[in-house]
């Protein structure tokens, strides 16, 4: 077997979603792969984690990793792609729109944190996601909010990403 064939076989054994039988060594790498990526997503999306709860968040994260395995040398791509995966796969529930808006906001928060010279960004949301994200980042445990038409402004001041909210009549969102 060539080096490439061996690597292809071991890669498949480590990344396949169903647990299946594995040698103890492969099981360690498989567990590390899944754990590392889910933990990275938890750190990237703290407000989404709080909103969904650990179990549901992990289900979405594991589904994302299976559907769209990581590529590229850094983990940053995960933060951009996870909201798109949620949008494509989230069930049609009353809370879905809030979750998708919150994911979009946290992804944008991260991009702005890392950007070289970011311009302010404006979001028009059906839920007050800015207040929710600010509360979680301050260590709070906010309840899931009721819909409230919101215009958010995100900007960076001395390397800190700040979000301010203005509340609008729902008709202004369209």
């Amino acid at each position: 077997m060539t080096l490439a064939e061996r690597q292809q076989r071991l890669f498949a054994a480590i990344t396949r979603p169903d647990p299946g039988a594995a040698t103890p060594g492969v099981a360690i790498y498989r567990n590390a792969y899944r754990t590392r990526l889910i933990e990275t997503l938890r750190e990237m999306f703290p407000a989404l984690l709080h909103a969904l709860g650990a179990e549901l968040f992990e289900q979405f994260a594991a589904g994302f990793i299976t559907h769209d395995p990581p590529r590229g040398p850094t983990l940053e791509r995960l933060a951009g792609e996870f909201p798109r995966h949620l949008a494509a796969t989230a069930p049609d529930e009353p809370w879905t729109r809030f979750i998708l808006e919150l994911a979009e906001l946290e992804s944008a928060f991260r991009r702005m944190y890392d950007a070289a010279d970011p311009a302010p960004a404006v979001f028009r949301f059906a839920y007050p996601c800015g207040e929710y994200l600010n509360a979680v980042r301050r260590g709070g445990t906010p309840e899931l909010p009721a819909p409230r038409a919101t215009i958010l402004t995100m900007r960076r001041v001395r390397f800190r990403v700040l979000i301010t909210s203005e509340y609008a009549l729902p008709s202004l969102l369209h």
Partner: peptide
């Protein structure tokens, strides 16, 4: 080490076969 295959990555440090080819 190696980290992935076919354009995908594990973000892990995977062991190499230790032989002359490698």
């Amino acid at each position: 080490c190696w980290t992935g295959f076919g354009g995908l990555t594990t973000h892990d440090l995977l062991p190499l076969p230790l032989d002359e080819e490698t």
